[in-house]
Amino acid sequence: MSVIIIIFLATGLVFFAGGAIGIIRFPDFYSRLHPAGKLDTAGLFMTMIALALYTIYEFNVDNLITALKIILIVVFVFLTSPVATHAIVDAGVRAGLKPWTKEKEKEDNK
């Protein structure tokens, strides 16, 4: 059981680390939202599953309810995180920000 929990936690941390690096390393606004929106959700999913498994380690009704509450967090983040990313991208497009391209960067560097 604890091996499974550790695997889940480690995968979650990999996702979080990837998200953090991605936000710094990607070239522009839109591509930065890609790690921010996806990898954080995936990382949260993995870590929360691990925490839920950890709470029902000693199985009784109270722990089960706590685990269900943790799953509820995942459900709400799954609902809100993509919508928030969608809204931010929408605002960027409406404000007139052009997406990054390789050609454009070459022109800027000239």
């Binding site: 709400f76 609902l79 809100t80 969608h86 409406r94």
Partner: peptide, 17 residues
């Protein structure tokens, strides 16, 4: 303001909670 179905529906789902 464009009509944004995604945001409106999600917010309507979430606000009661």
């Amino acid at each position: 303001v464009p009509y944004d179905l995604i945001i409106k529906t999600t917010c309507r789902l979430l606000i009661p909670f």
